[in-house]
Nucleic acid binder design. Structure first.
Length: 557
RNA sequence: GCCCCGAUAGCUCAGUCGGAUAGAGCGACCCCCUCCUAAGGGGUAGGCCAGCGGUUCGAUUCCGCUUCGGGGCACCA
């Protein structure tokens, strides 16, 4: 029995109490789904609910009296071993071993599907993240979202949503021109332009461009500058894509800003905004009246000199996403972009949408890196960049991804590079992966002993899993579907990581006291088989969770 | 000046929807390998949940103010 199933059972019991008059409230005053929690103290049972206290006020009754009525109704329900009233009106519930044990088989049978659900079925999400300028390597700020954004998308998808991962390529505007000018200068040995891009990667890129096509050096200056810009764009974008592939982050759509301008998307968006009545002209420029919707100042769409602003692209891009049918557009941005939030929401409102639904902006706080207690600075201008590639080279994909996902994105994060490479408990990724490897090892050893636990020769008997730590492990396994729904609804994949750590602990504790395999010449008994099912279930959940985070689930370490 | 985020153990941090004795890892100290990986398990010590008010049966959690950190406020991209 999972917490969700127990909540349903309690809900049914509550309705029966109301029908028979033992709890004096209206049916619509009952919670849609009663809160079922795992008490910290094992003496308080396997699960507890506070629903009696919540109903005390509407029922104008003592919470303990309500709890007593509910307890009467619940006791005798199949699968429930005992119900106790405690404290101010908590109801502590114990589940029969067999009712919990069946979950081991269910999880194994469901396989990769175990934990997936339909809580968000029918909802279409566009998850846009990283969206770096193609003018340099991906750095640490991008890396956080590369891991967390991907995990958010995975978690939404596991909760049943229809999800597209999207990377917006800022391939237009003065930064691109500056990039081209910087590459040309580097190739010709000229000084870097003012505010231009510096760093070793510019020189390397310039050399690569010349090596590909030496004729570029013979072009007239204006053509040459464009040629460097375009070649640099192509190479830099390819390098970013390559980097993200090695980081196991894959996008459904690479969306070019240029394409918005090429196919008239900007004009169409302007028309749409104009039709909604929020566009006006002042001082020769064209403005969007975002102050109609809580922005602190209006924004320019077309400058007095006729150039389109970057903001015009933003508007067009938003309209484009809506035209593609996404209900909710997630923007995963760095803390330095938080000024964007009101603006984007205002754009949504100006386009006639409800920004509460159509726009969701998640702000990721900065990532600092330390090594041996000293901060490692990242500064693109100075050319000292901590890149995604650097991080992966140093600590590996699994440790990098897991560590970045493990914390809520809205809390500032300090990575200690020295700690990340340690293969110990300082590093929770190894703790979780080790649990997976340890179970794999047990199952391998079972096979070596000739035990075919799945064959049915000895039937799986869920009632045998009655030890305290077997119950703890089963309840941890039962929590997984609920954790996914919570992580998806709150856009907080770190909950999955923290859950996996708890699950790993539950397994290690089980392993410490419950012998799985027969020793020496012991016969294979039903308890061994039942425990192997439990091991296989834990293995499956660990694998499903790690996969969702983009972290490997090794069979050996 | 205005806006966003944060403040929980010595350190790094968990703790949706308010609940019982506030948790984990690391660090410190003490135990446990004739047994499936000790990359593990058990235990001890360590807290004014930044401060002050409010809401209520009950607040680390919700609201307000204050203090201290971090970030942001372009006809830049």
């Amino acid at each position: 029995m999972t917490p969700g199933e127990l909540a349903d059972v309690i809900g049914t019991a509550l309705r029966e109490c109301v029908a028979s008059g033992t709890i004096a409230v209206e049916l619509d005053q009952l919670p849609s789904s009663p809160v079922v929690e795992r008490p910290k103290n094992p003496e308080h049972g396997d699960y507890a609910t506070n629903v009696a206290m919540q109903l005390a006020k509407p029922a104008k009754a003592n919470p303990r009296a309500i709890a007593a009525a509910l307890a009467d109704q619940l006791s005798g329900t199949p699968g429930i071993a005992g119900v106790e009233i405690a404290g101010p009106g908590f109801l502590n519930i114990r589940i029969e071993a067999a009712a919990q044990g069946v979950l081991a088989e269910a999880a194994v049978v469901a396989g990769a599907q175990y934990g997936r659900g339909d809580a968000l079925a029918g909802k279409r999400f566009n998850v846009e993240f990283i969206s770096a300028n193609p003018t340099g390597p991906l750095h640490l700020g991008h890396t956080r979202w590369a891991a967390v954004g991907d995990a958010i998308a995975s978690v939404l998808s596991a909760a049943g949503a229809d999800v597209d991962r999207e990377f917006y390529i800022n391939d237009r505007g003065v930064q691109m021109d500056m990039f081209g000018a910087s590459l040309r200068a580097a190739a010709l040995g000229l000084p870097t332009p003012e505010n231009g891009y510096r760093g070793a990667y510019i020189a390397e890129l310039a050399a690569e461009i010349v090596a590909e096509d030496a004729a570029i050096l013979e072009l007239p200056e204006d053509e040459q500058f464009v040629a460097f810009r375009e070649a640099g764009y192509r190479l830099q974008l390819a390098q970013q894509q390559d980097t993200l592939n090695t980081f196991h982050t894959y996008f459904d759509t690479w969306f070019s800003e240029r394409s918005l301008h090429a196919d008239g998307g900007v004009e169409r968006a302007l028309e749409k905004l104009r039709a909604q009545g929020h566009v006006y002209e002042l001082d020769g420029a064209v403005w969007l009246r975002t102050t109609d919707f809580d922005d602190d100042k209006d924004r320019v769409l077309i400058k007095a000199n006729g150039d389109l602003t970057y903001f015009a692209s933003d508007c067009a891009y938003y309209v484009n996403k809506r035209d593609r049918g996404f209900d909710t557009n997630l923007y995963l941005l760095g803390a330095d972009h938080h000024g964007y939030v009101n603006r984007l929401r205002a754009v949504s409102a100006c386009a006639g949408d409800d920004p509460e639904v159509a726009i969701e902006v998640l702000i990721g706080q900065l990532v600092k890196t330390m090594r041996d207690g000293v901060e490692v600075k990242l500064s693109k201008r100075a050319g000292e960049i901590v890149t995604l590639t650097d991080l992966v080279d140093e600590v590996g994909v699994d440790a990098a991804r897991y560590t970045l996902i493990r914390y809520p994105a809205d809390s500032p994060l300090t990575l200690d590079l020295g700690l990340l490479v340690k293969r110990s408990n300082d590093n929770p990724v190894y703790y979780v992966q080790y649990a997976h490897a340890r179970i794999s090892s047990v199952l391998r050893n079972a096979a070596d002993l000739g035990i075919d636990w799945r064959s049915g020769a000895i039937a799986f008997d869920p009632a045998l899993l009655e030890a305290e730590r077997e119950g703890e492990l089963l309840r941890a396994i039962a929590d997984f579907p609920g954790v996914i729904v919570g992580a998806a609804e709150l856009r907080e994949p770190h909950r999955v990581a923290r859950y996996l750590e708890d699950l790993a602990t539950a397994y290690h504790r089980f392993y410490d006291t419950c012998r799985v395999l027969p020793r020496g010449d012991e016969e294979v008994e039903a308890l061994h088989v039942a425990r192997l099912w439990l091991c296989a279930a834990a293995l499956q959940v660990l694998a499903n969770g790690l996969t969702m985070l983009g972290v490997s689930a090794p069979e050996r370490m």
